[in-house]
Design a protein around this nucleic acid. Sequence first.
DNA 1: GGGTGGCCGATTGTATACAAGCTAAAGTAC
DNA 2: GTACTTTAGCTTGTATACAATCGGCCACCC
Lengths: 213, 213
Amino acid sequence: MRASETAYQLLRDEIIQWRLEPGTPLGEVETSQRLGVSRTPLREALSRLTAEGLVRTGPGRTAVVTSMSRDDIVELFELREALETQAARLAARRRDATVFEALRADFVAGGRGKNVPVEDRPYELADALDVAIDEAAGSVYLQGALRDLRGHLARVRRSAHSNADRLGRATSEHILIVDAILAQDEALAASATAVHLHNSLANVLASLPQDEA
Amino acid sequence: MRASETAYQLLRDEIIQWRLEPGTPLGEVETSQRLGVSRTPLREALSRLTAEGLVRTGPGRTAVVTSMSRDDIVELFELREALETQAARLAARRRDATVFEALRADFVAGGRGKNVPVEDRPYELADALDVAIDEAAGSVYLQGALRDLRGHLARVRRSAHSNADRLGRATSEHILIVDAILAQDEALAASATAVHLHNSLANVLASLPQDEA
DNA sequence: GGGTGGCCGATTGTATACAAGCTAAAGTAC
DNA sequence: GTACTTTAGCTTGTATACAATCGGCCACCC
């Protein structure tokens, strides 16, 4: 694999999994030595991460890991609502029924049969639904915008643990979205998505360490 | 100015203004010599343009200027609708009245008093409205997604000339959007934006060179 | 005659050397 | 004591040299 790609993947994982905390400075010399690549491919990796929004440059041209405040999470979900409701609308219009029928069965079965740990199955299924919707929407531009979003969302997920109650409700919400897409009901698909995101955001905010005003 | 920034700006302008046509290969050696920079900063520029979607890599690792088919334009407007209706909603919620009152006066006056050529005034005003809405929405993530979009839209604008009739209607639509934002009517702001984009897309598609099925 | 193998050319990928800018700190002058 | 200036160190920005990979083409073999 290319060194620039390696550096990008490594850094992205470290940021998303909070092994690199927000505000961590990423000096080129130090980071390149740590990752075992030279500065040139590292700069390309940092460039991609900056465009993605996971790394911010400055002040002093130094790259630092982007912070994730409570406001950031709210803004992130505002963008997410715009993109995912539209994606749901388009998916309802253009979906391949067999794909979503299979997904529906998976949700009802709770992900049994998957080769993933039990506690990861809800996320696995949710990700599968996201991918299916993205593909069904069939817009490269929308997919591009959503791709950047997913990285940030994965970061948020790491900092907010869902309880069993929330997971159960989330599954119901997901099934409703799938049903709306299967029924090609664009308005319902969008509304169901908006509801799901609203509840999801509320859950994330509630589980934040300190809920400052 | 930094060489990488210079290269980025030059290439971006050339692509947006169609001086580099879609499909044009951007060999690193040739392009770097043409722009008067070395390969390293050029690679950073290409990296940014690729992330922005104006340049695509491959096949054979060569960078080429992205194409803009009719389908691309439709998909672009689908994303635009998602982002701008949300931005309009948020702007209606959080707007600074004085800013939009000034904008409204500008629209009614038709941009008189501006130091720009008469034929550019409608675009100048539309851009000013876009900026005002983006800022009023107050979401860095939404703004980031919109920033990438603007480049593509500027490309589309170059290939579709509006007639006087369309410009007049567009102004009416813009004023309606401004009024909705001033009235803090989120639903109307979003709907008015959707209508405007729908009409705008229809105008663009109609003025396409060959309207193939 | 067609297909396959290897070679040559060119292009991108990487590393490193060098230059320039910025930050911060320390010293001096007021 | 404070503020300003200068310098030293480190940082990033750029250029170029070198390595590796990809594609095309030609010759040779089947």
